[in-house]
Amino acid sequence: MAFYDLSKSERADRVSAIGNDIRQALLAQKAENVRVYYADDDTYIRKTAYVASGRLYEEEASLRPAVHTMLAGFLTDDDFRVRQTAINAAGEIGRKHFEEVRTIFDEGLQDTHHAPRNAVIGSVKKMGEVNPIPVLAWARQYLHHPDKEIRREICHGIELRGRKHPEDILPLLQELQHDHTARVRGTLVHVIGQIAYKKGCLLKVLNHLKTWENRQLVYDALEEIVDVHHRYRDFAALTQEEAARMVDEHYPERGQANRIHR
């Protein structure tokens, strides 16, 4: 029976049972007993497993070597779901202990399957939001990686931190302003838009963009900023009209020909 086919109380019991099974498996050094959860077809079972793994790492220091050994071993598993779940577990750990799991993300970025790589992006988002200094320092080293997909994934991964603290990620985004790959440029413009519509962020973004050299990319980003205030109008701090007015006040040199019409 799928996880969410269970009643609320049954789900709670299932979560507790999975956590206990993982703890016992780690104590007995039987990673294969954890693998069954990491490979489960049900997304929610896998999530329960990686959250439990992260919690055990945080709460029981004596289990940390066993958890780390298990996750490192799972990175070479034939099943992409096992590798994906291992990276997500490392993401839980990295919210406080990033340096202890950073090599897992180094390996995850090189995975041949998109699901583990997406788990790296998701993990960087949640880690960077609460543990930005080591996570952003790690991310920076990949901004000029020869693989365009890695550059794009890192750009996407640092987005969440920027929604509350754009000043933390704008210098990193700036390093991508001359990237010639369309997918990377598209993601860069998208991320700028995503951080600009949050409360208190637009002014910081507009001021920082004035220091960028690639003016065409800046103007593309300004288009996206105004457009995103319409697409996310139920969540944006400003109306589209207010955002457009602020953009025009800060970039009058665009003139009437470049003015964003809506």
Rank of each mutant, 00 (worst) to 15 (best):
K164H: 13
I154E: 10
G128K: 08
Q24Y: 12
H156W: 10
H144I: 04
G162H: 00
G94V: 03
H178G: 01
G193K: 01
K8F: 11
N118S: 02
A221C: 11
L206I: 03
D168H: 07
R259S: 02
A39Y: 08
P134A: 03
A257I: 12
E107I: 13
I192F: 03
D77C: 07
V15T: 11
V226C: 06
I93W: 15
K210Q: 02
E213P: 01
T187Q: 07
K210L: 06
A61N: 10
L202W: 05
V15A: 02
N33G: 07
E129M: 14
V120T: 12
H68K: 06
E92S: 05
K96R: 13
P166L: 04
H180Q: 07
L206R: 00
R185H: 07
L160Q: 08
L176F: 04
V205Q: 06
H113Q: 13
R215N: 01
G54W: 09
G157H: 05
Y232R: 06
G128R: 05
D168K: 04
L170G: 06
I45C: 09
V226Y: 02
K96N: 05
P171V: 00
L209H: 06
E223R: 07
Q141F: 00
A61R: 14
R183N: 13
R83D: 12
R14I: 14
I93Y: 05
M246D: 14
K148W: 14
R35N: 11
L143Y: 10
P116N: 03
N33L: 00
A115Y: 11
H68Q: 02
Q240C: 03
I104Q: 12
A12C: 14
L75Y: 10
Q240M: 05
E59Y: 13
H145C: 05
D78L: 09
E149Y: 15
T211P: 00
T48C: 14
L176D: 01
Y38I: 10
I154D: 04
G255A: 02
D13Y: 13
M246A: 08
T85R: 10
R23E: 13
V184F: 09
L238R: 06
S123A: 02
L176H: 08
L173F: 03
E100C: 10
F3D: 07
G19T: 12
V130T: 10
R185A: 09
I93T: 04
I22S: 11
Q256F: 02
A90E: 15
R117H: 03
G157A: 04
A243L: 11
F80C: 03
L26G: 05
A12N: 14
E153V: 02
A90D: 14
N20G: 14
Q174P: 03
M246P: 05
A221H: 02
I121K: 01
C155G: 01
L238Y: 15
N118H: 11
H230R: 04
H114A: 13
K126E: 15
G193C: 08
G255I: 10
Q177R: 12
G19P: 14
C155Y: 12
I192H: 13
G128S: 06
F98R: 08
I169T: 06
Y50D: 12
K126G: 13
Y38L: 03
R183L: 09
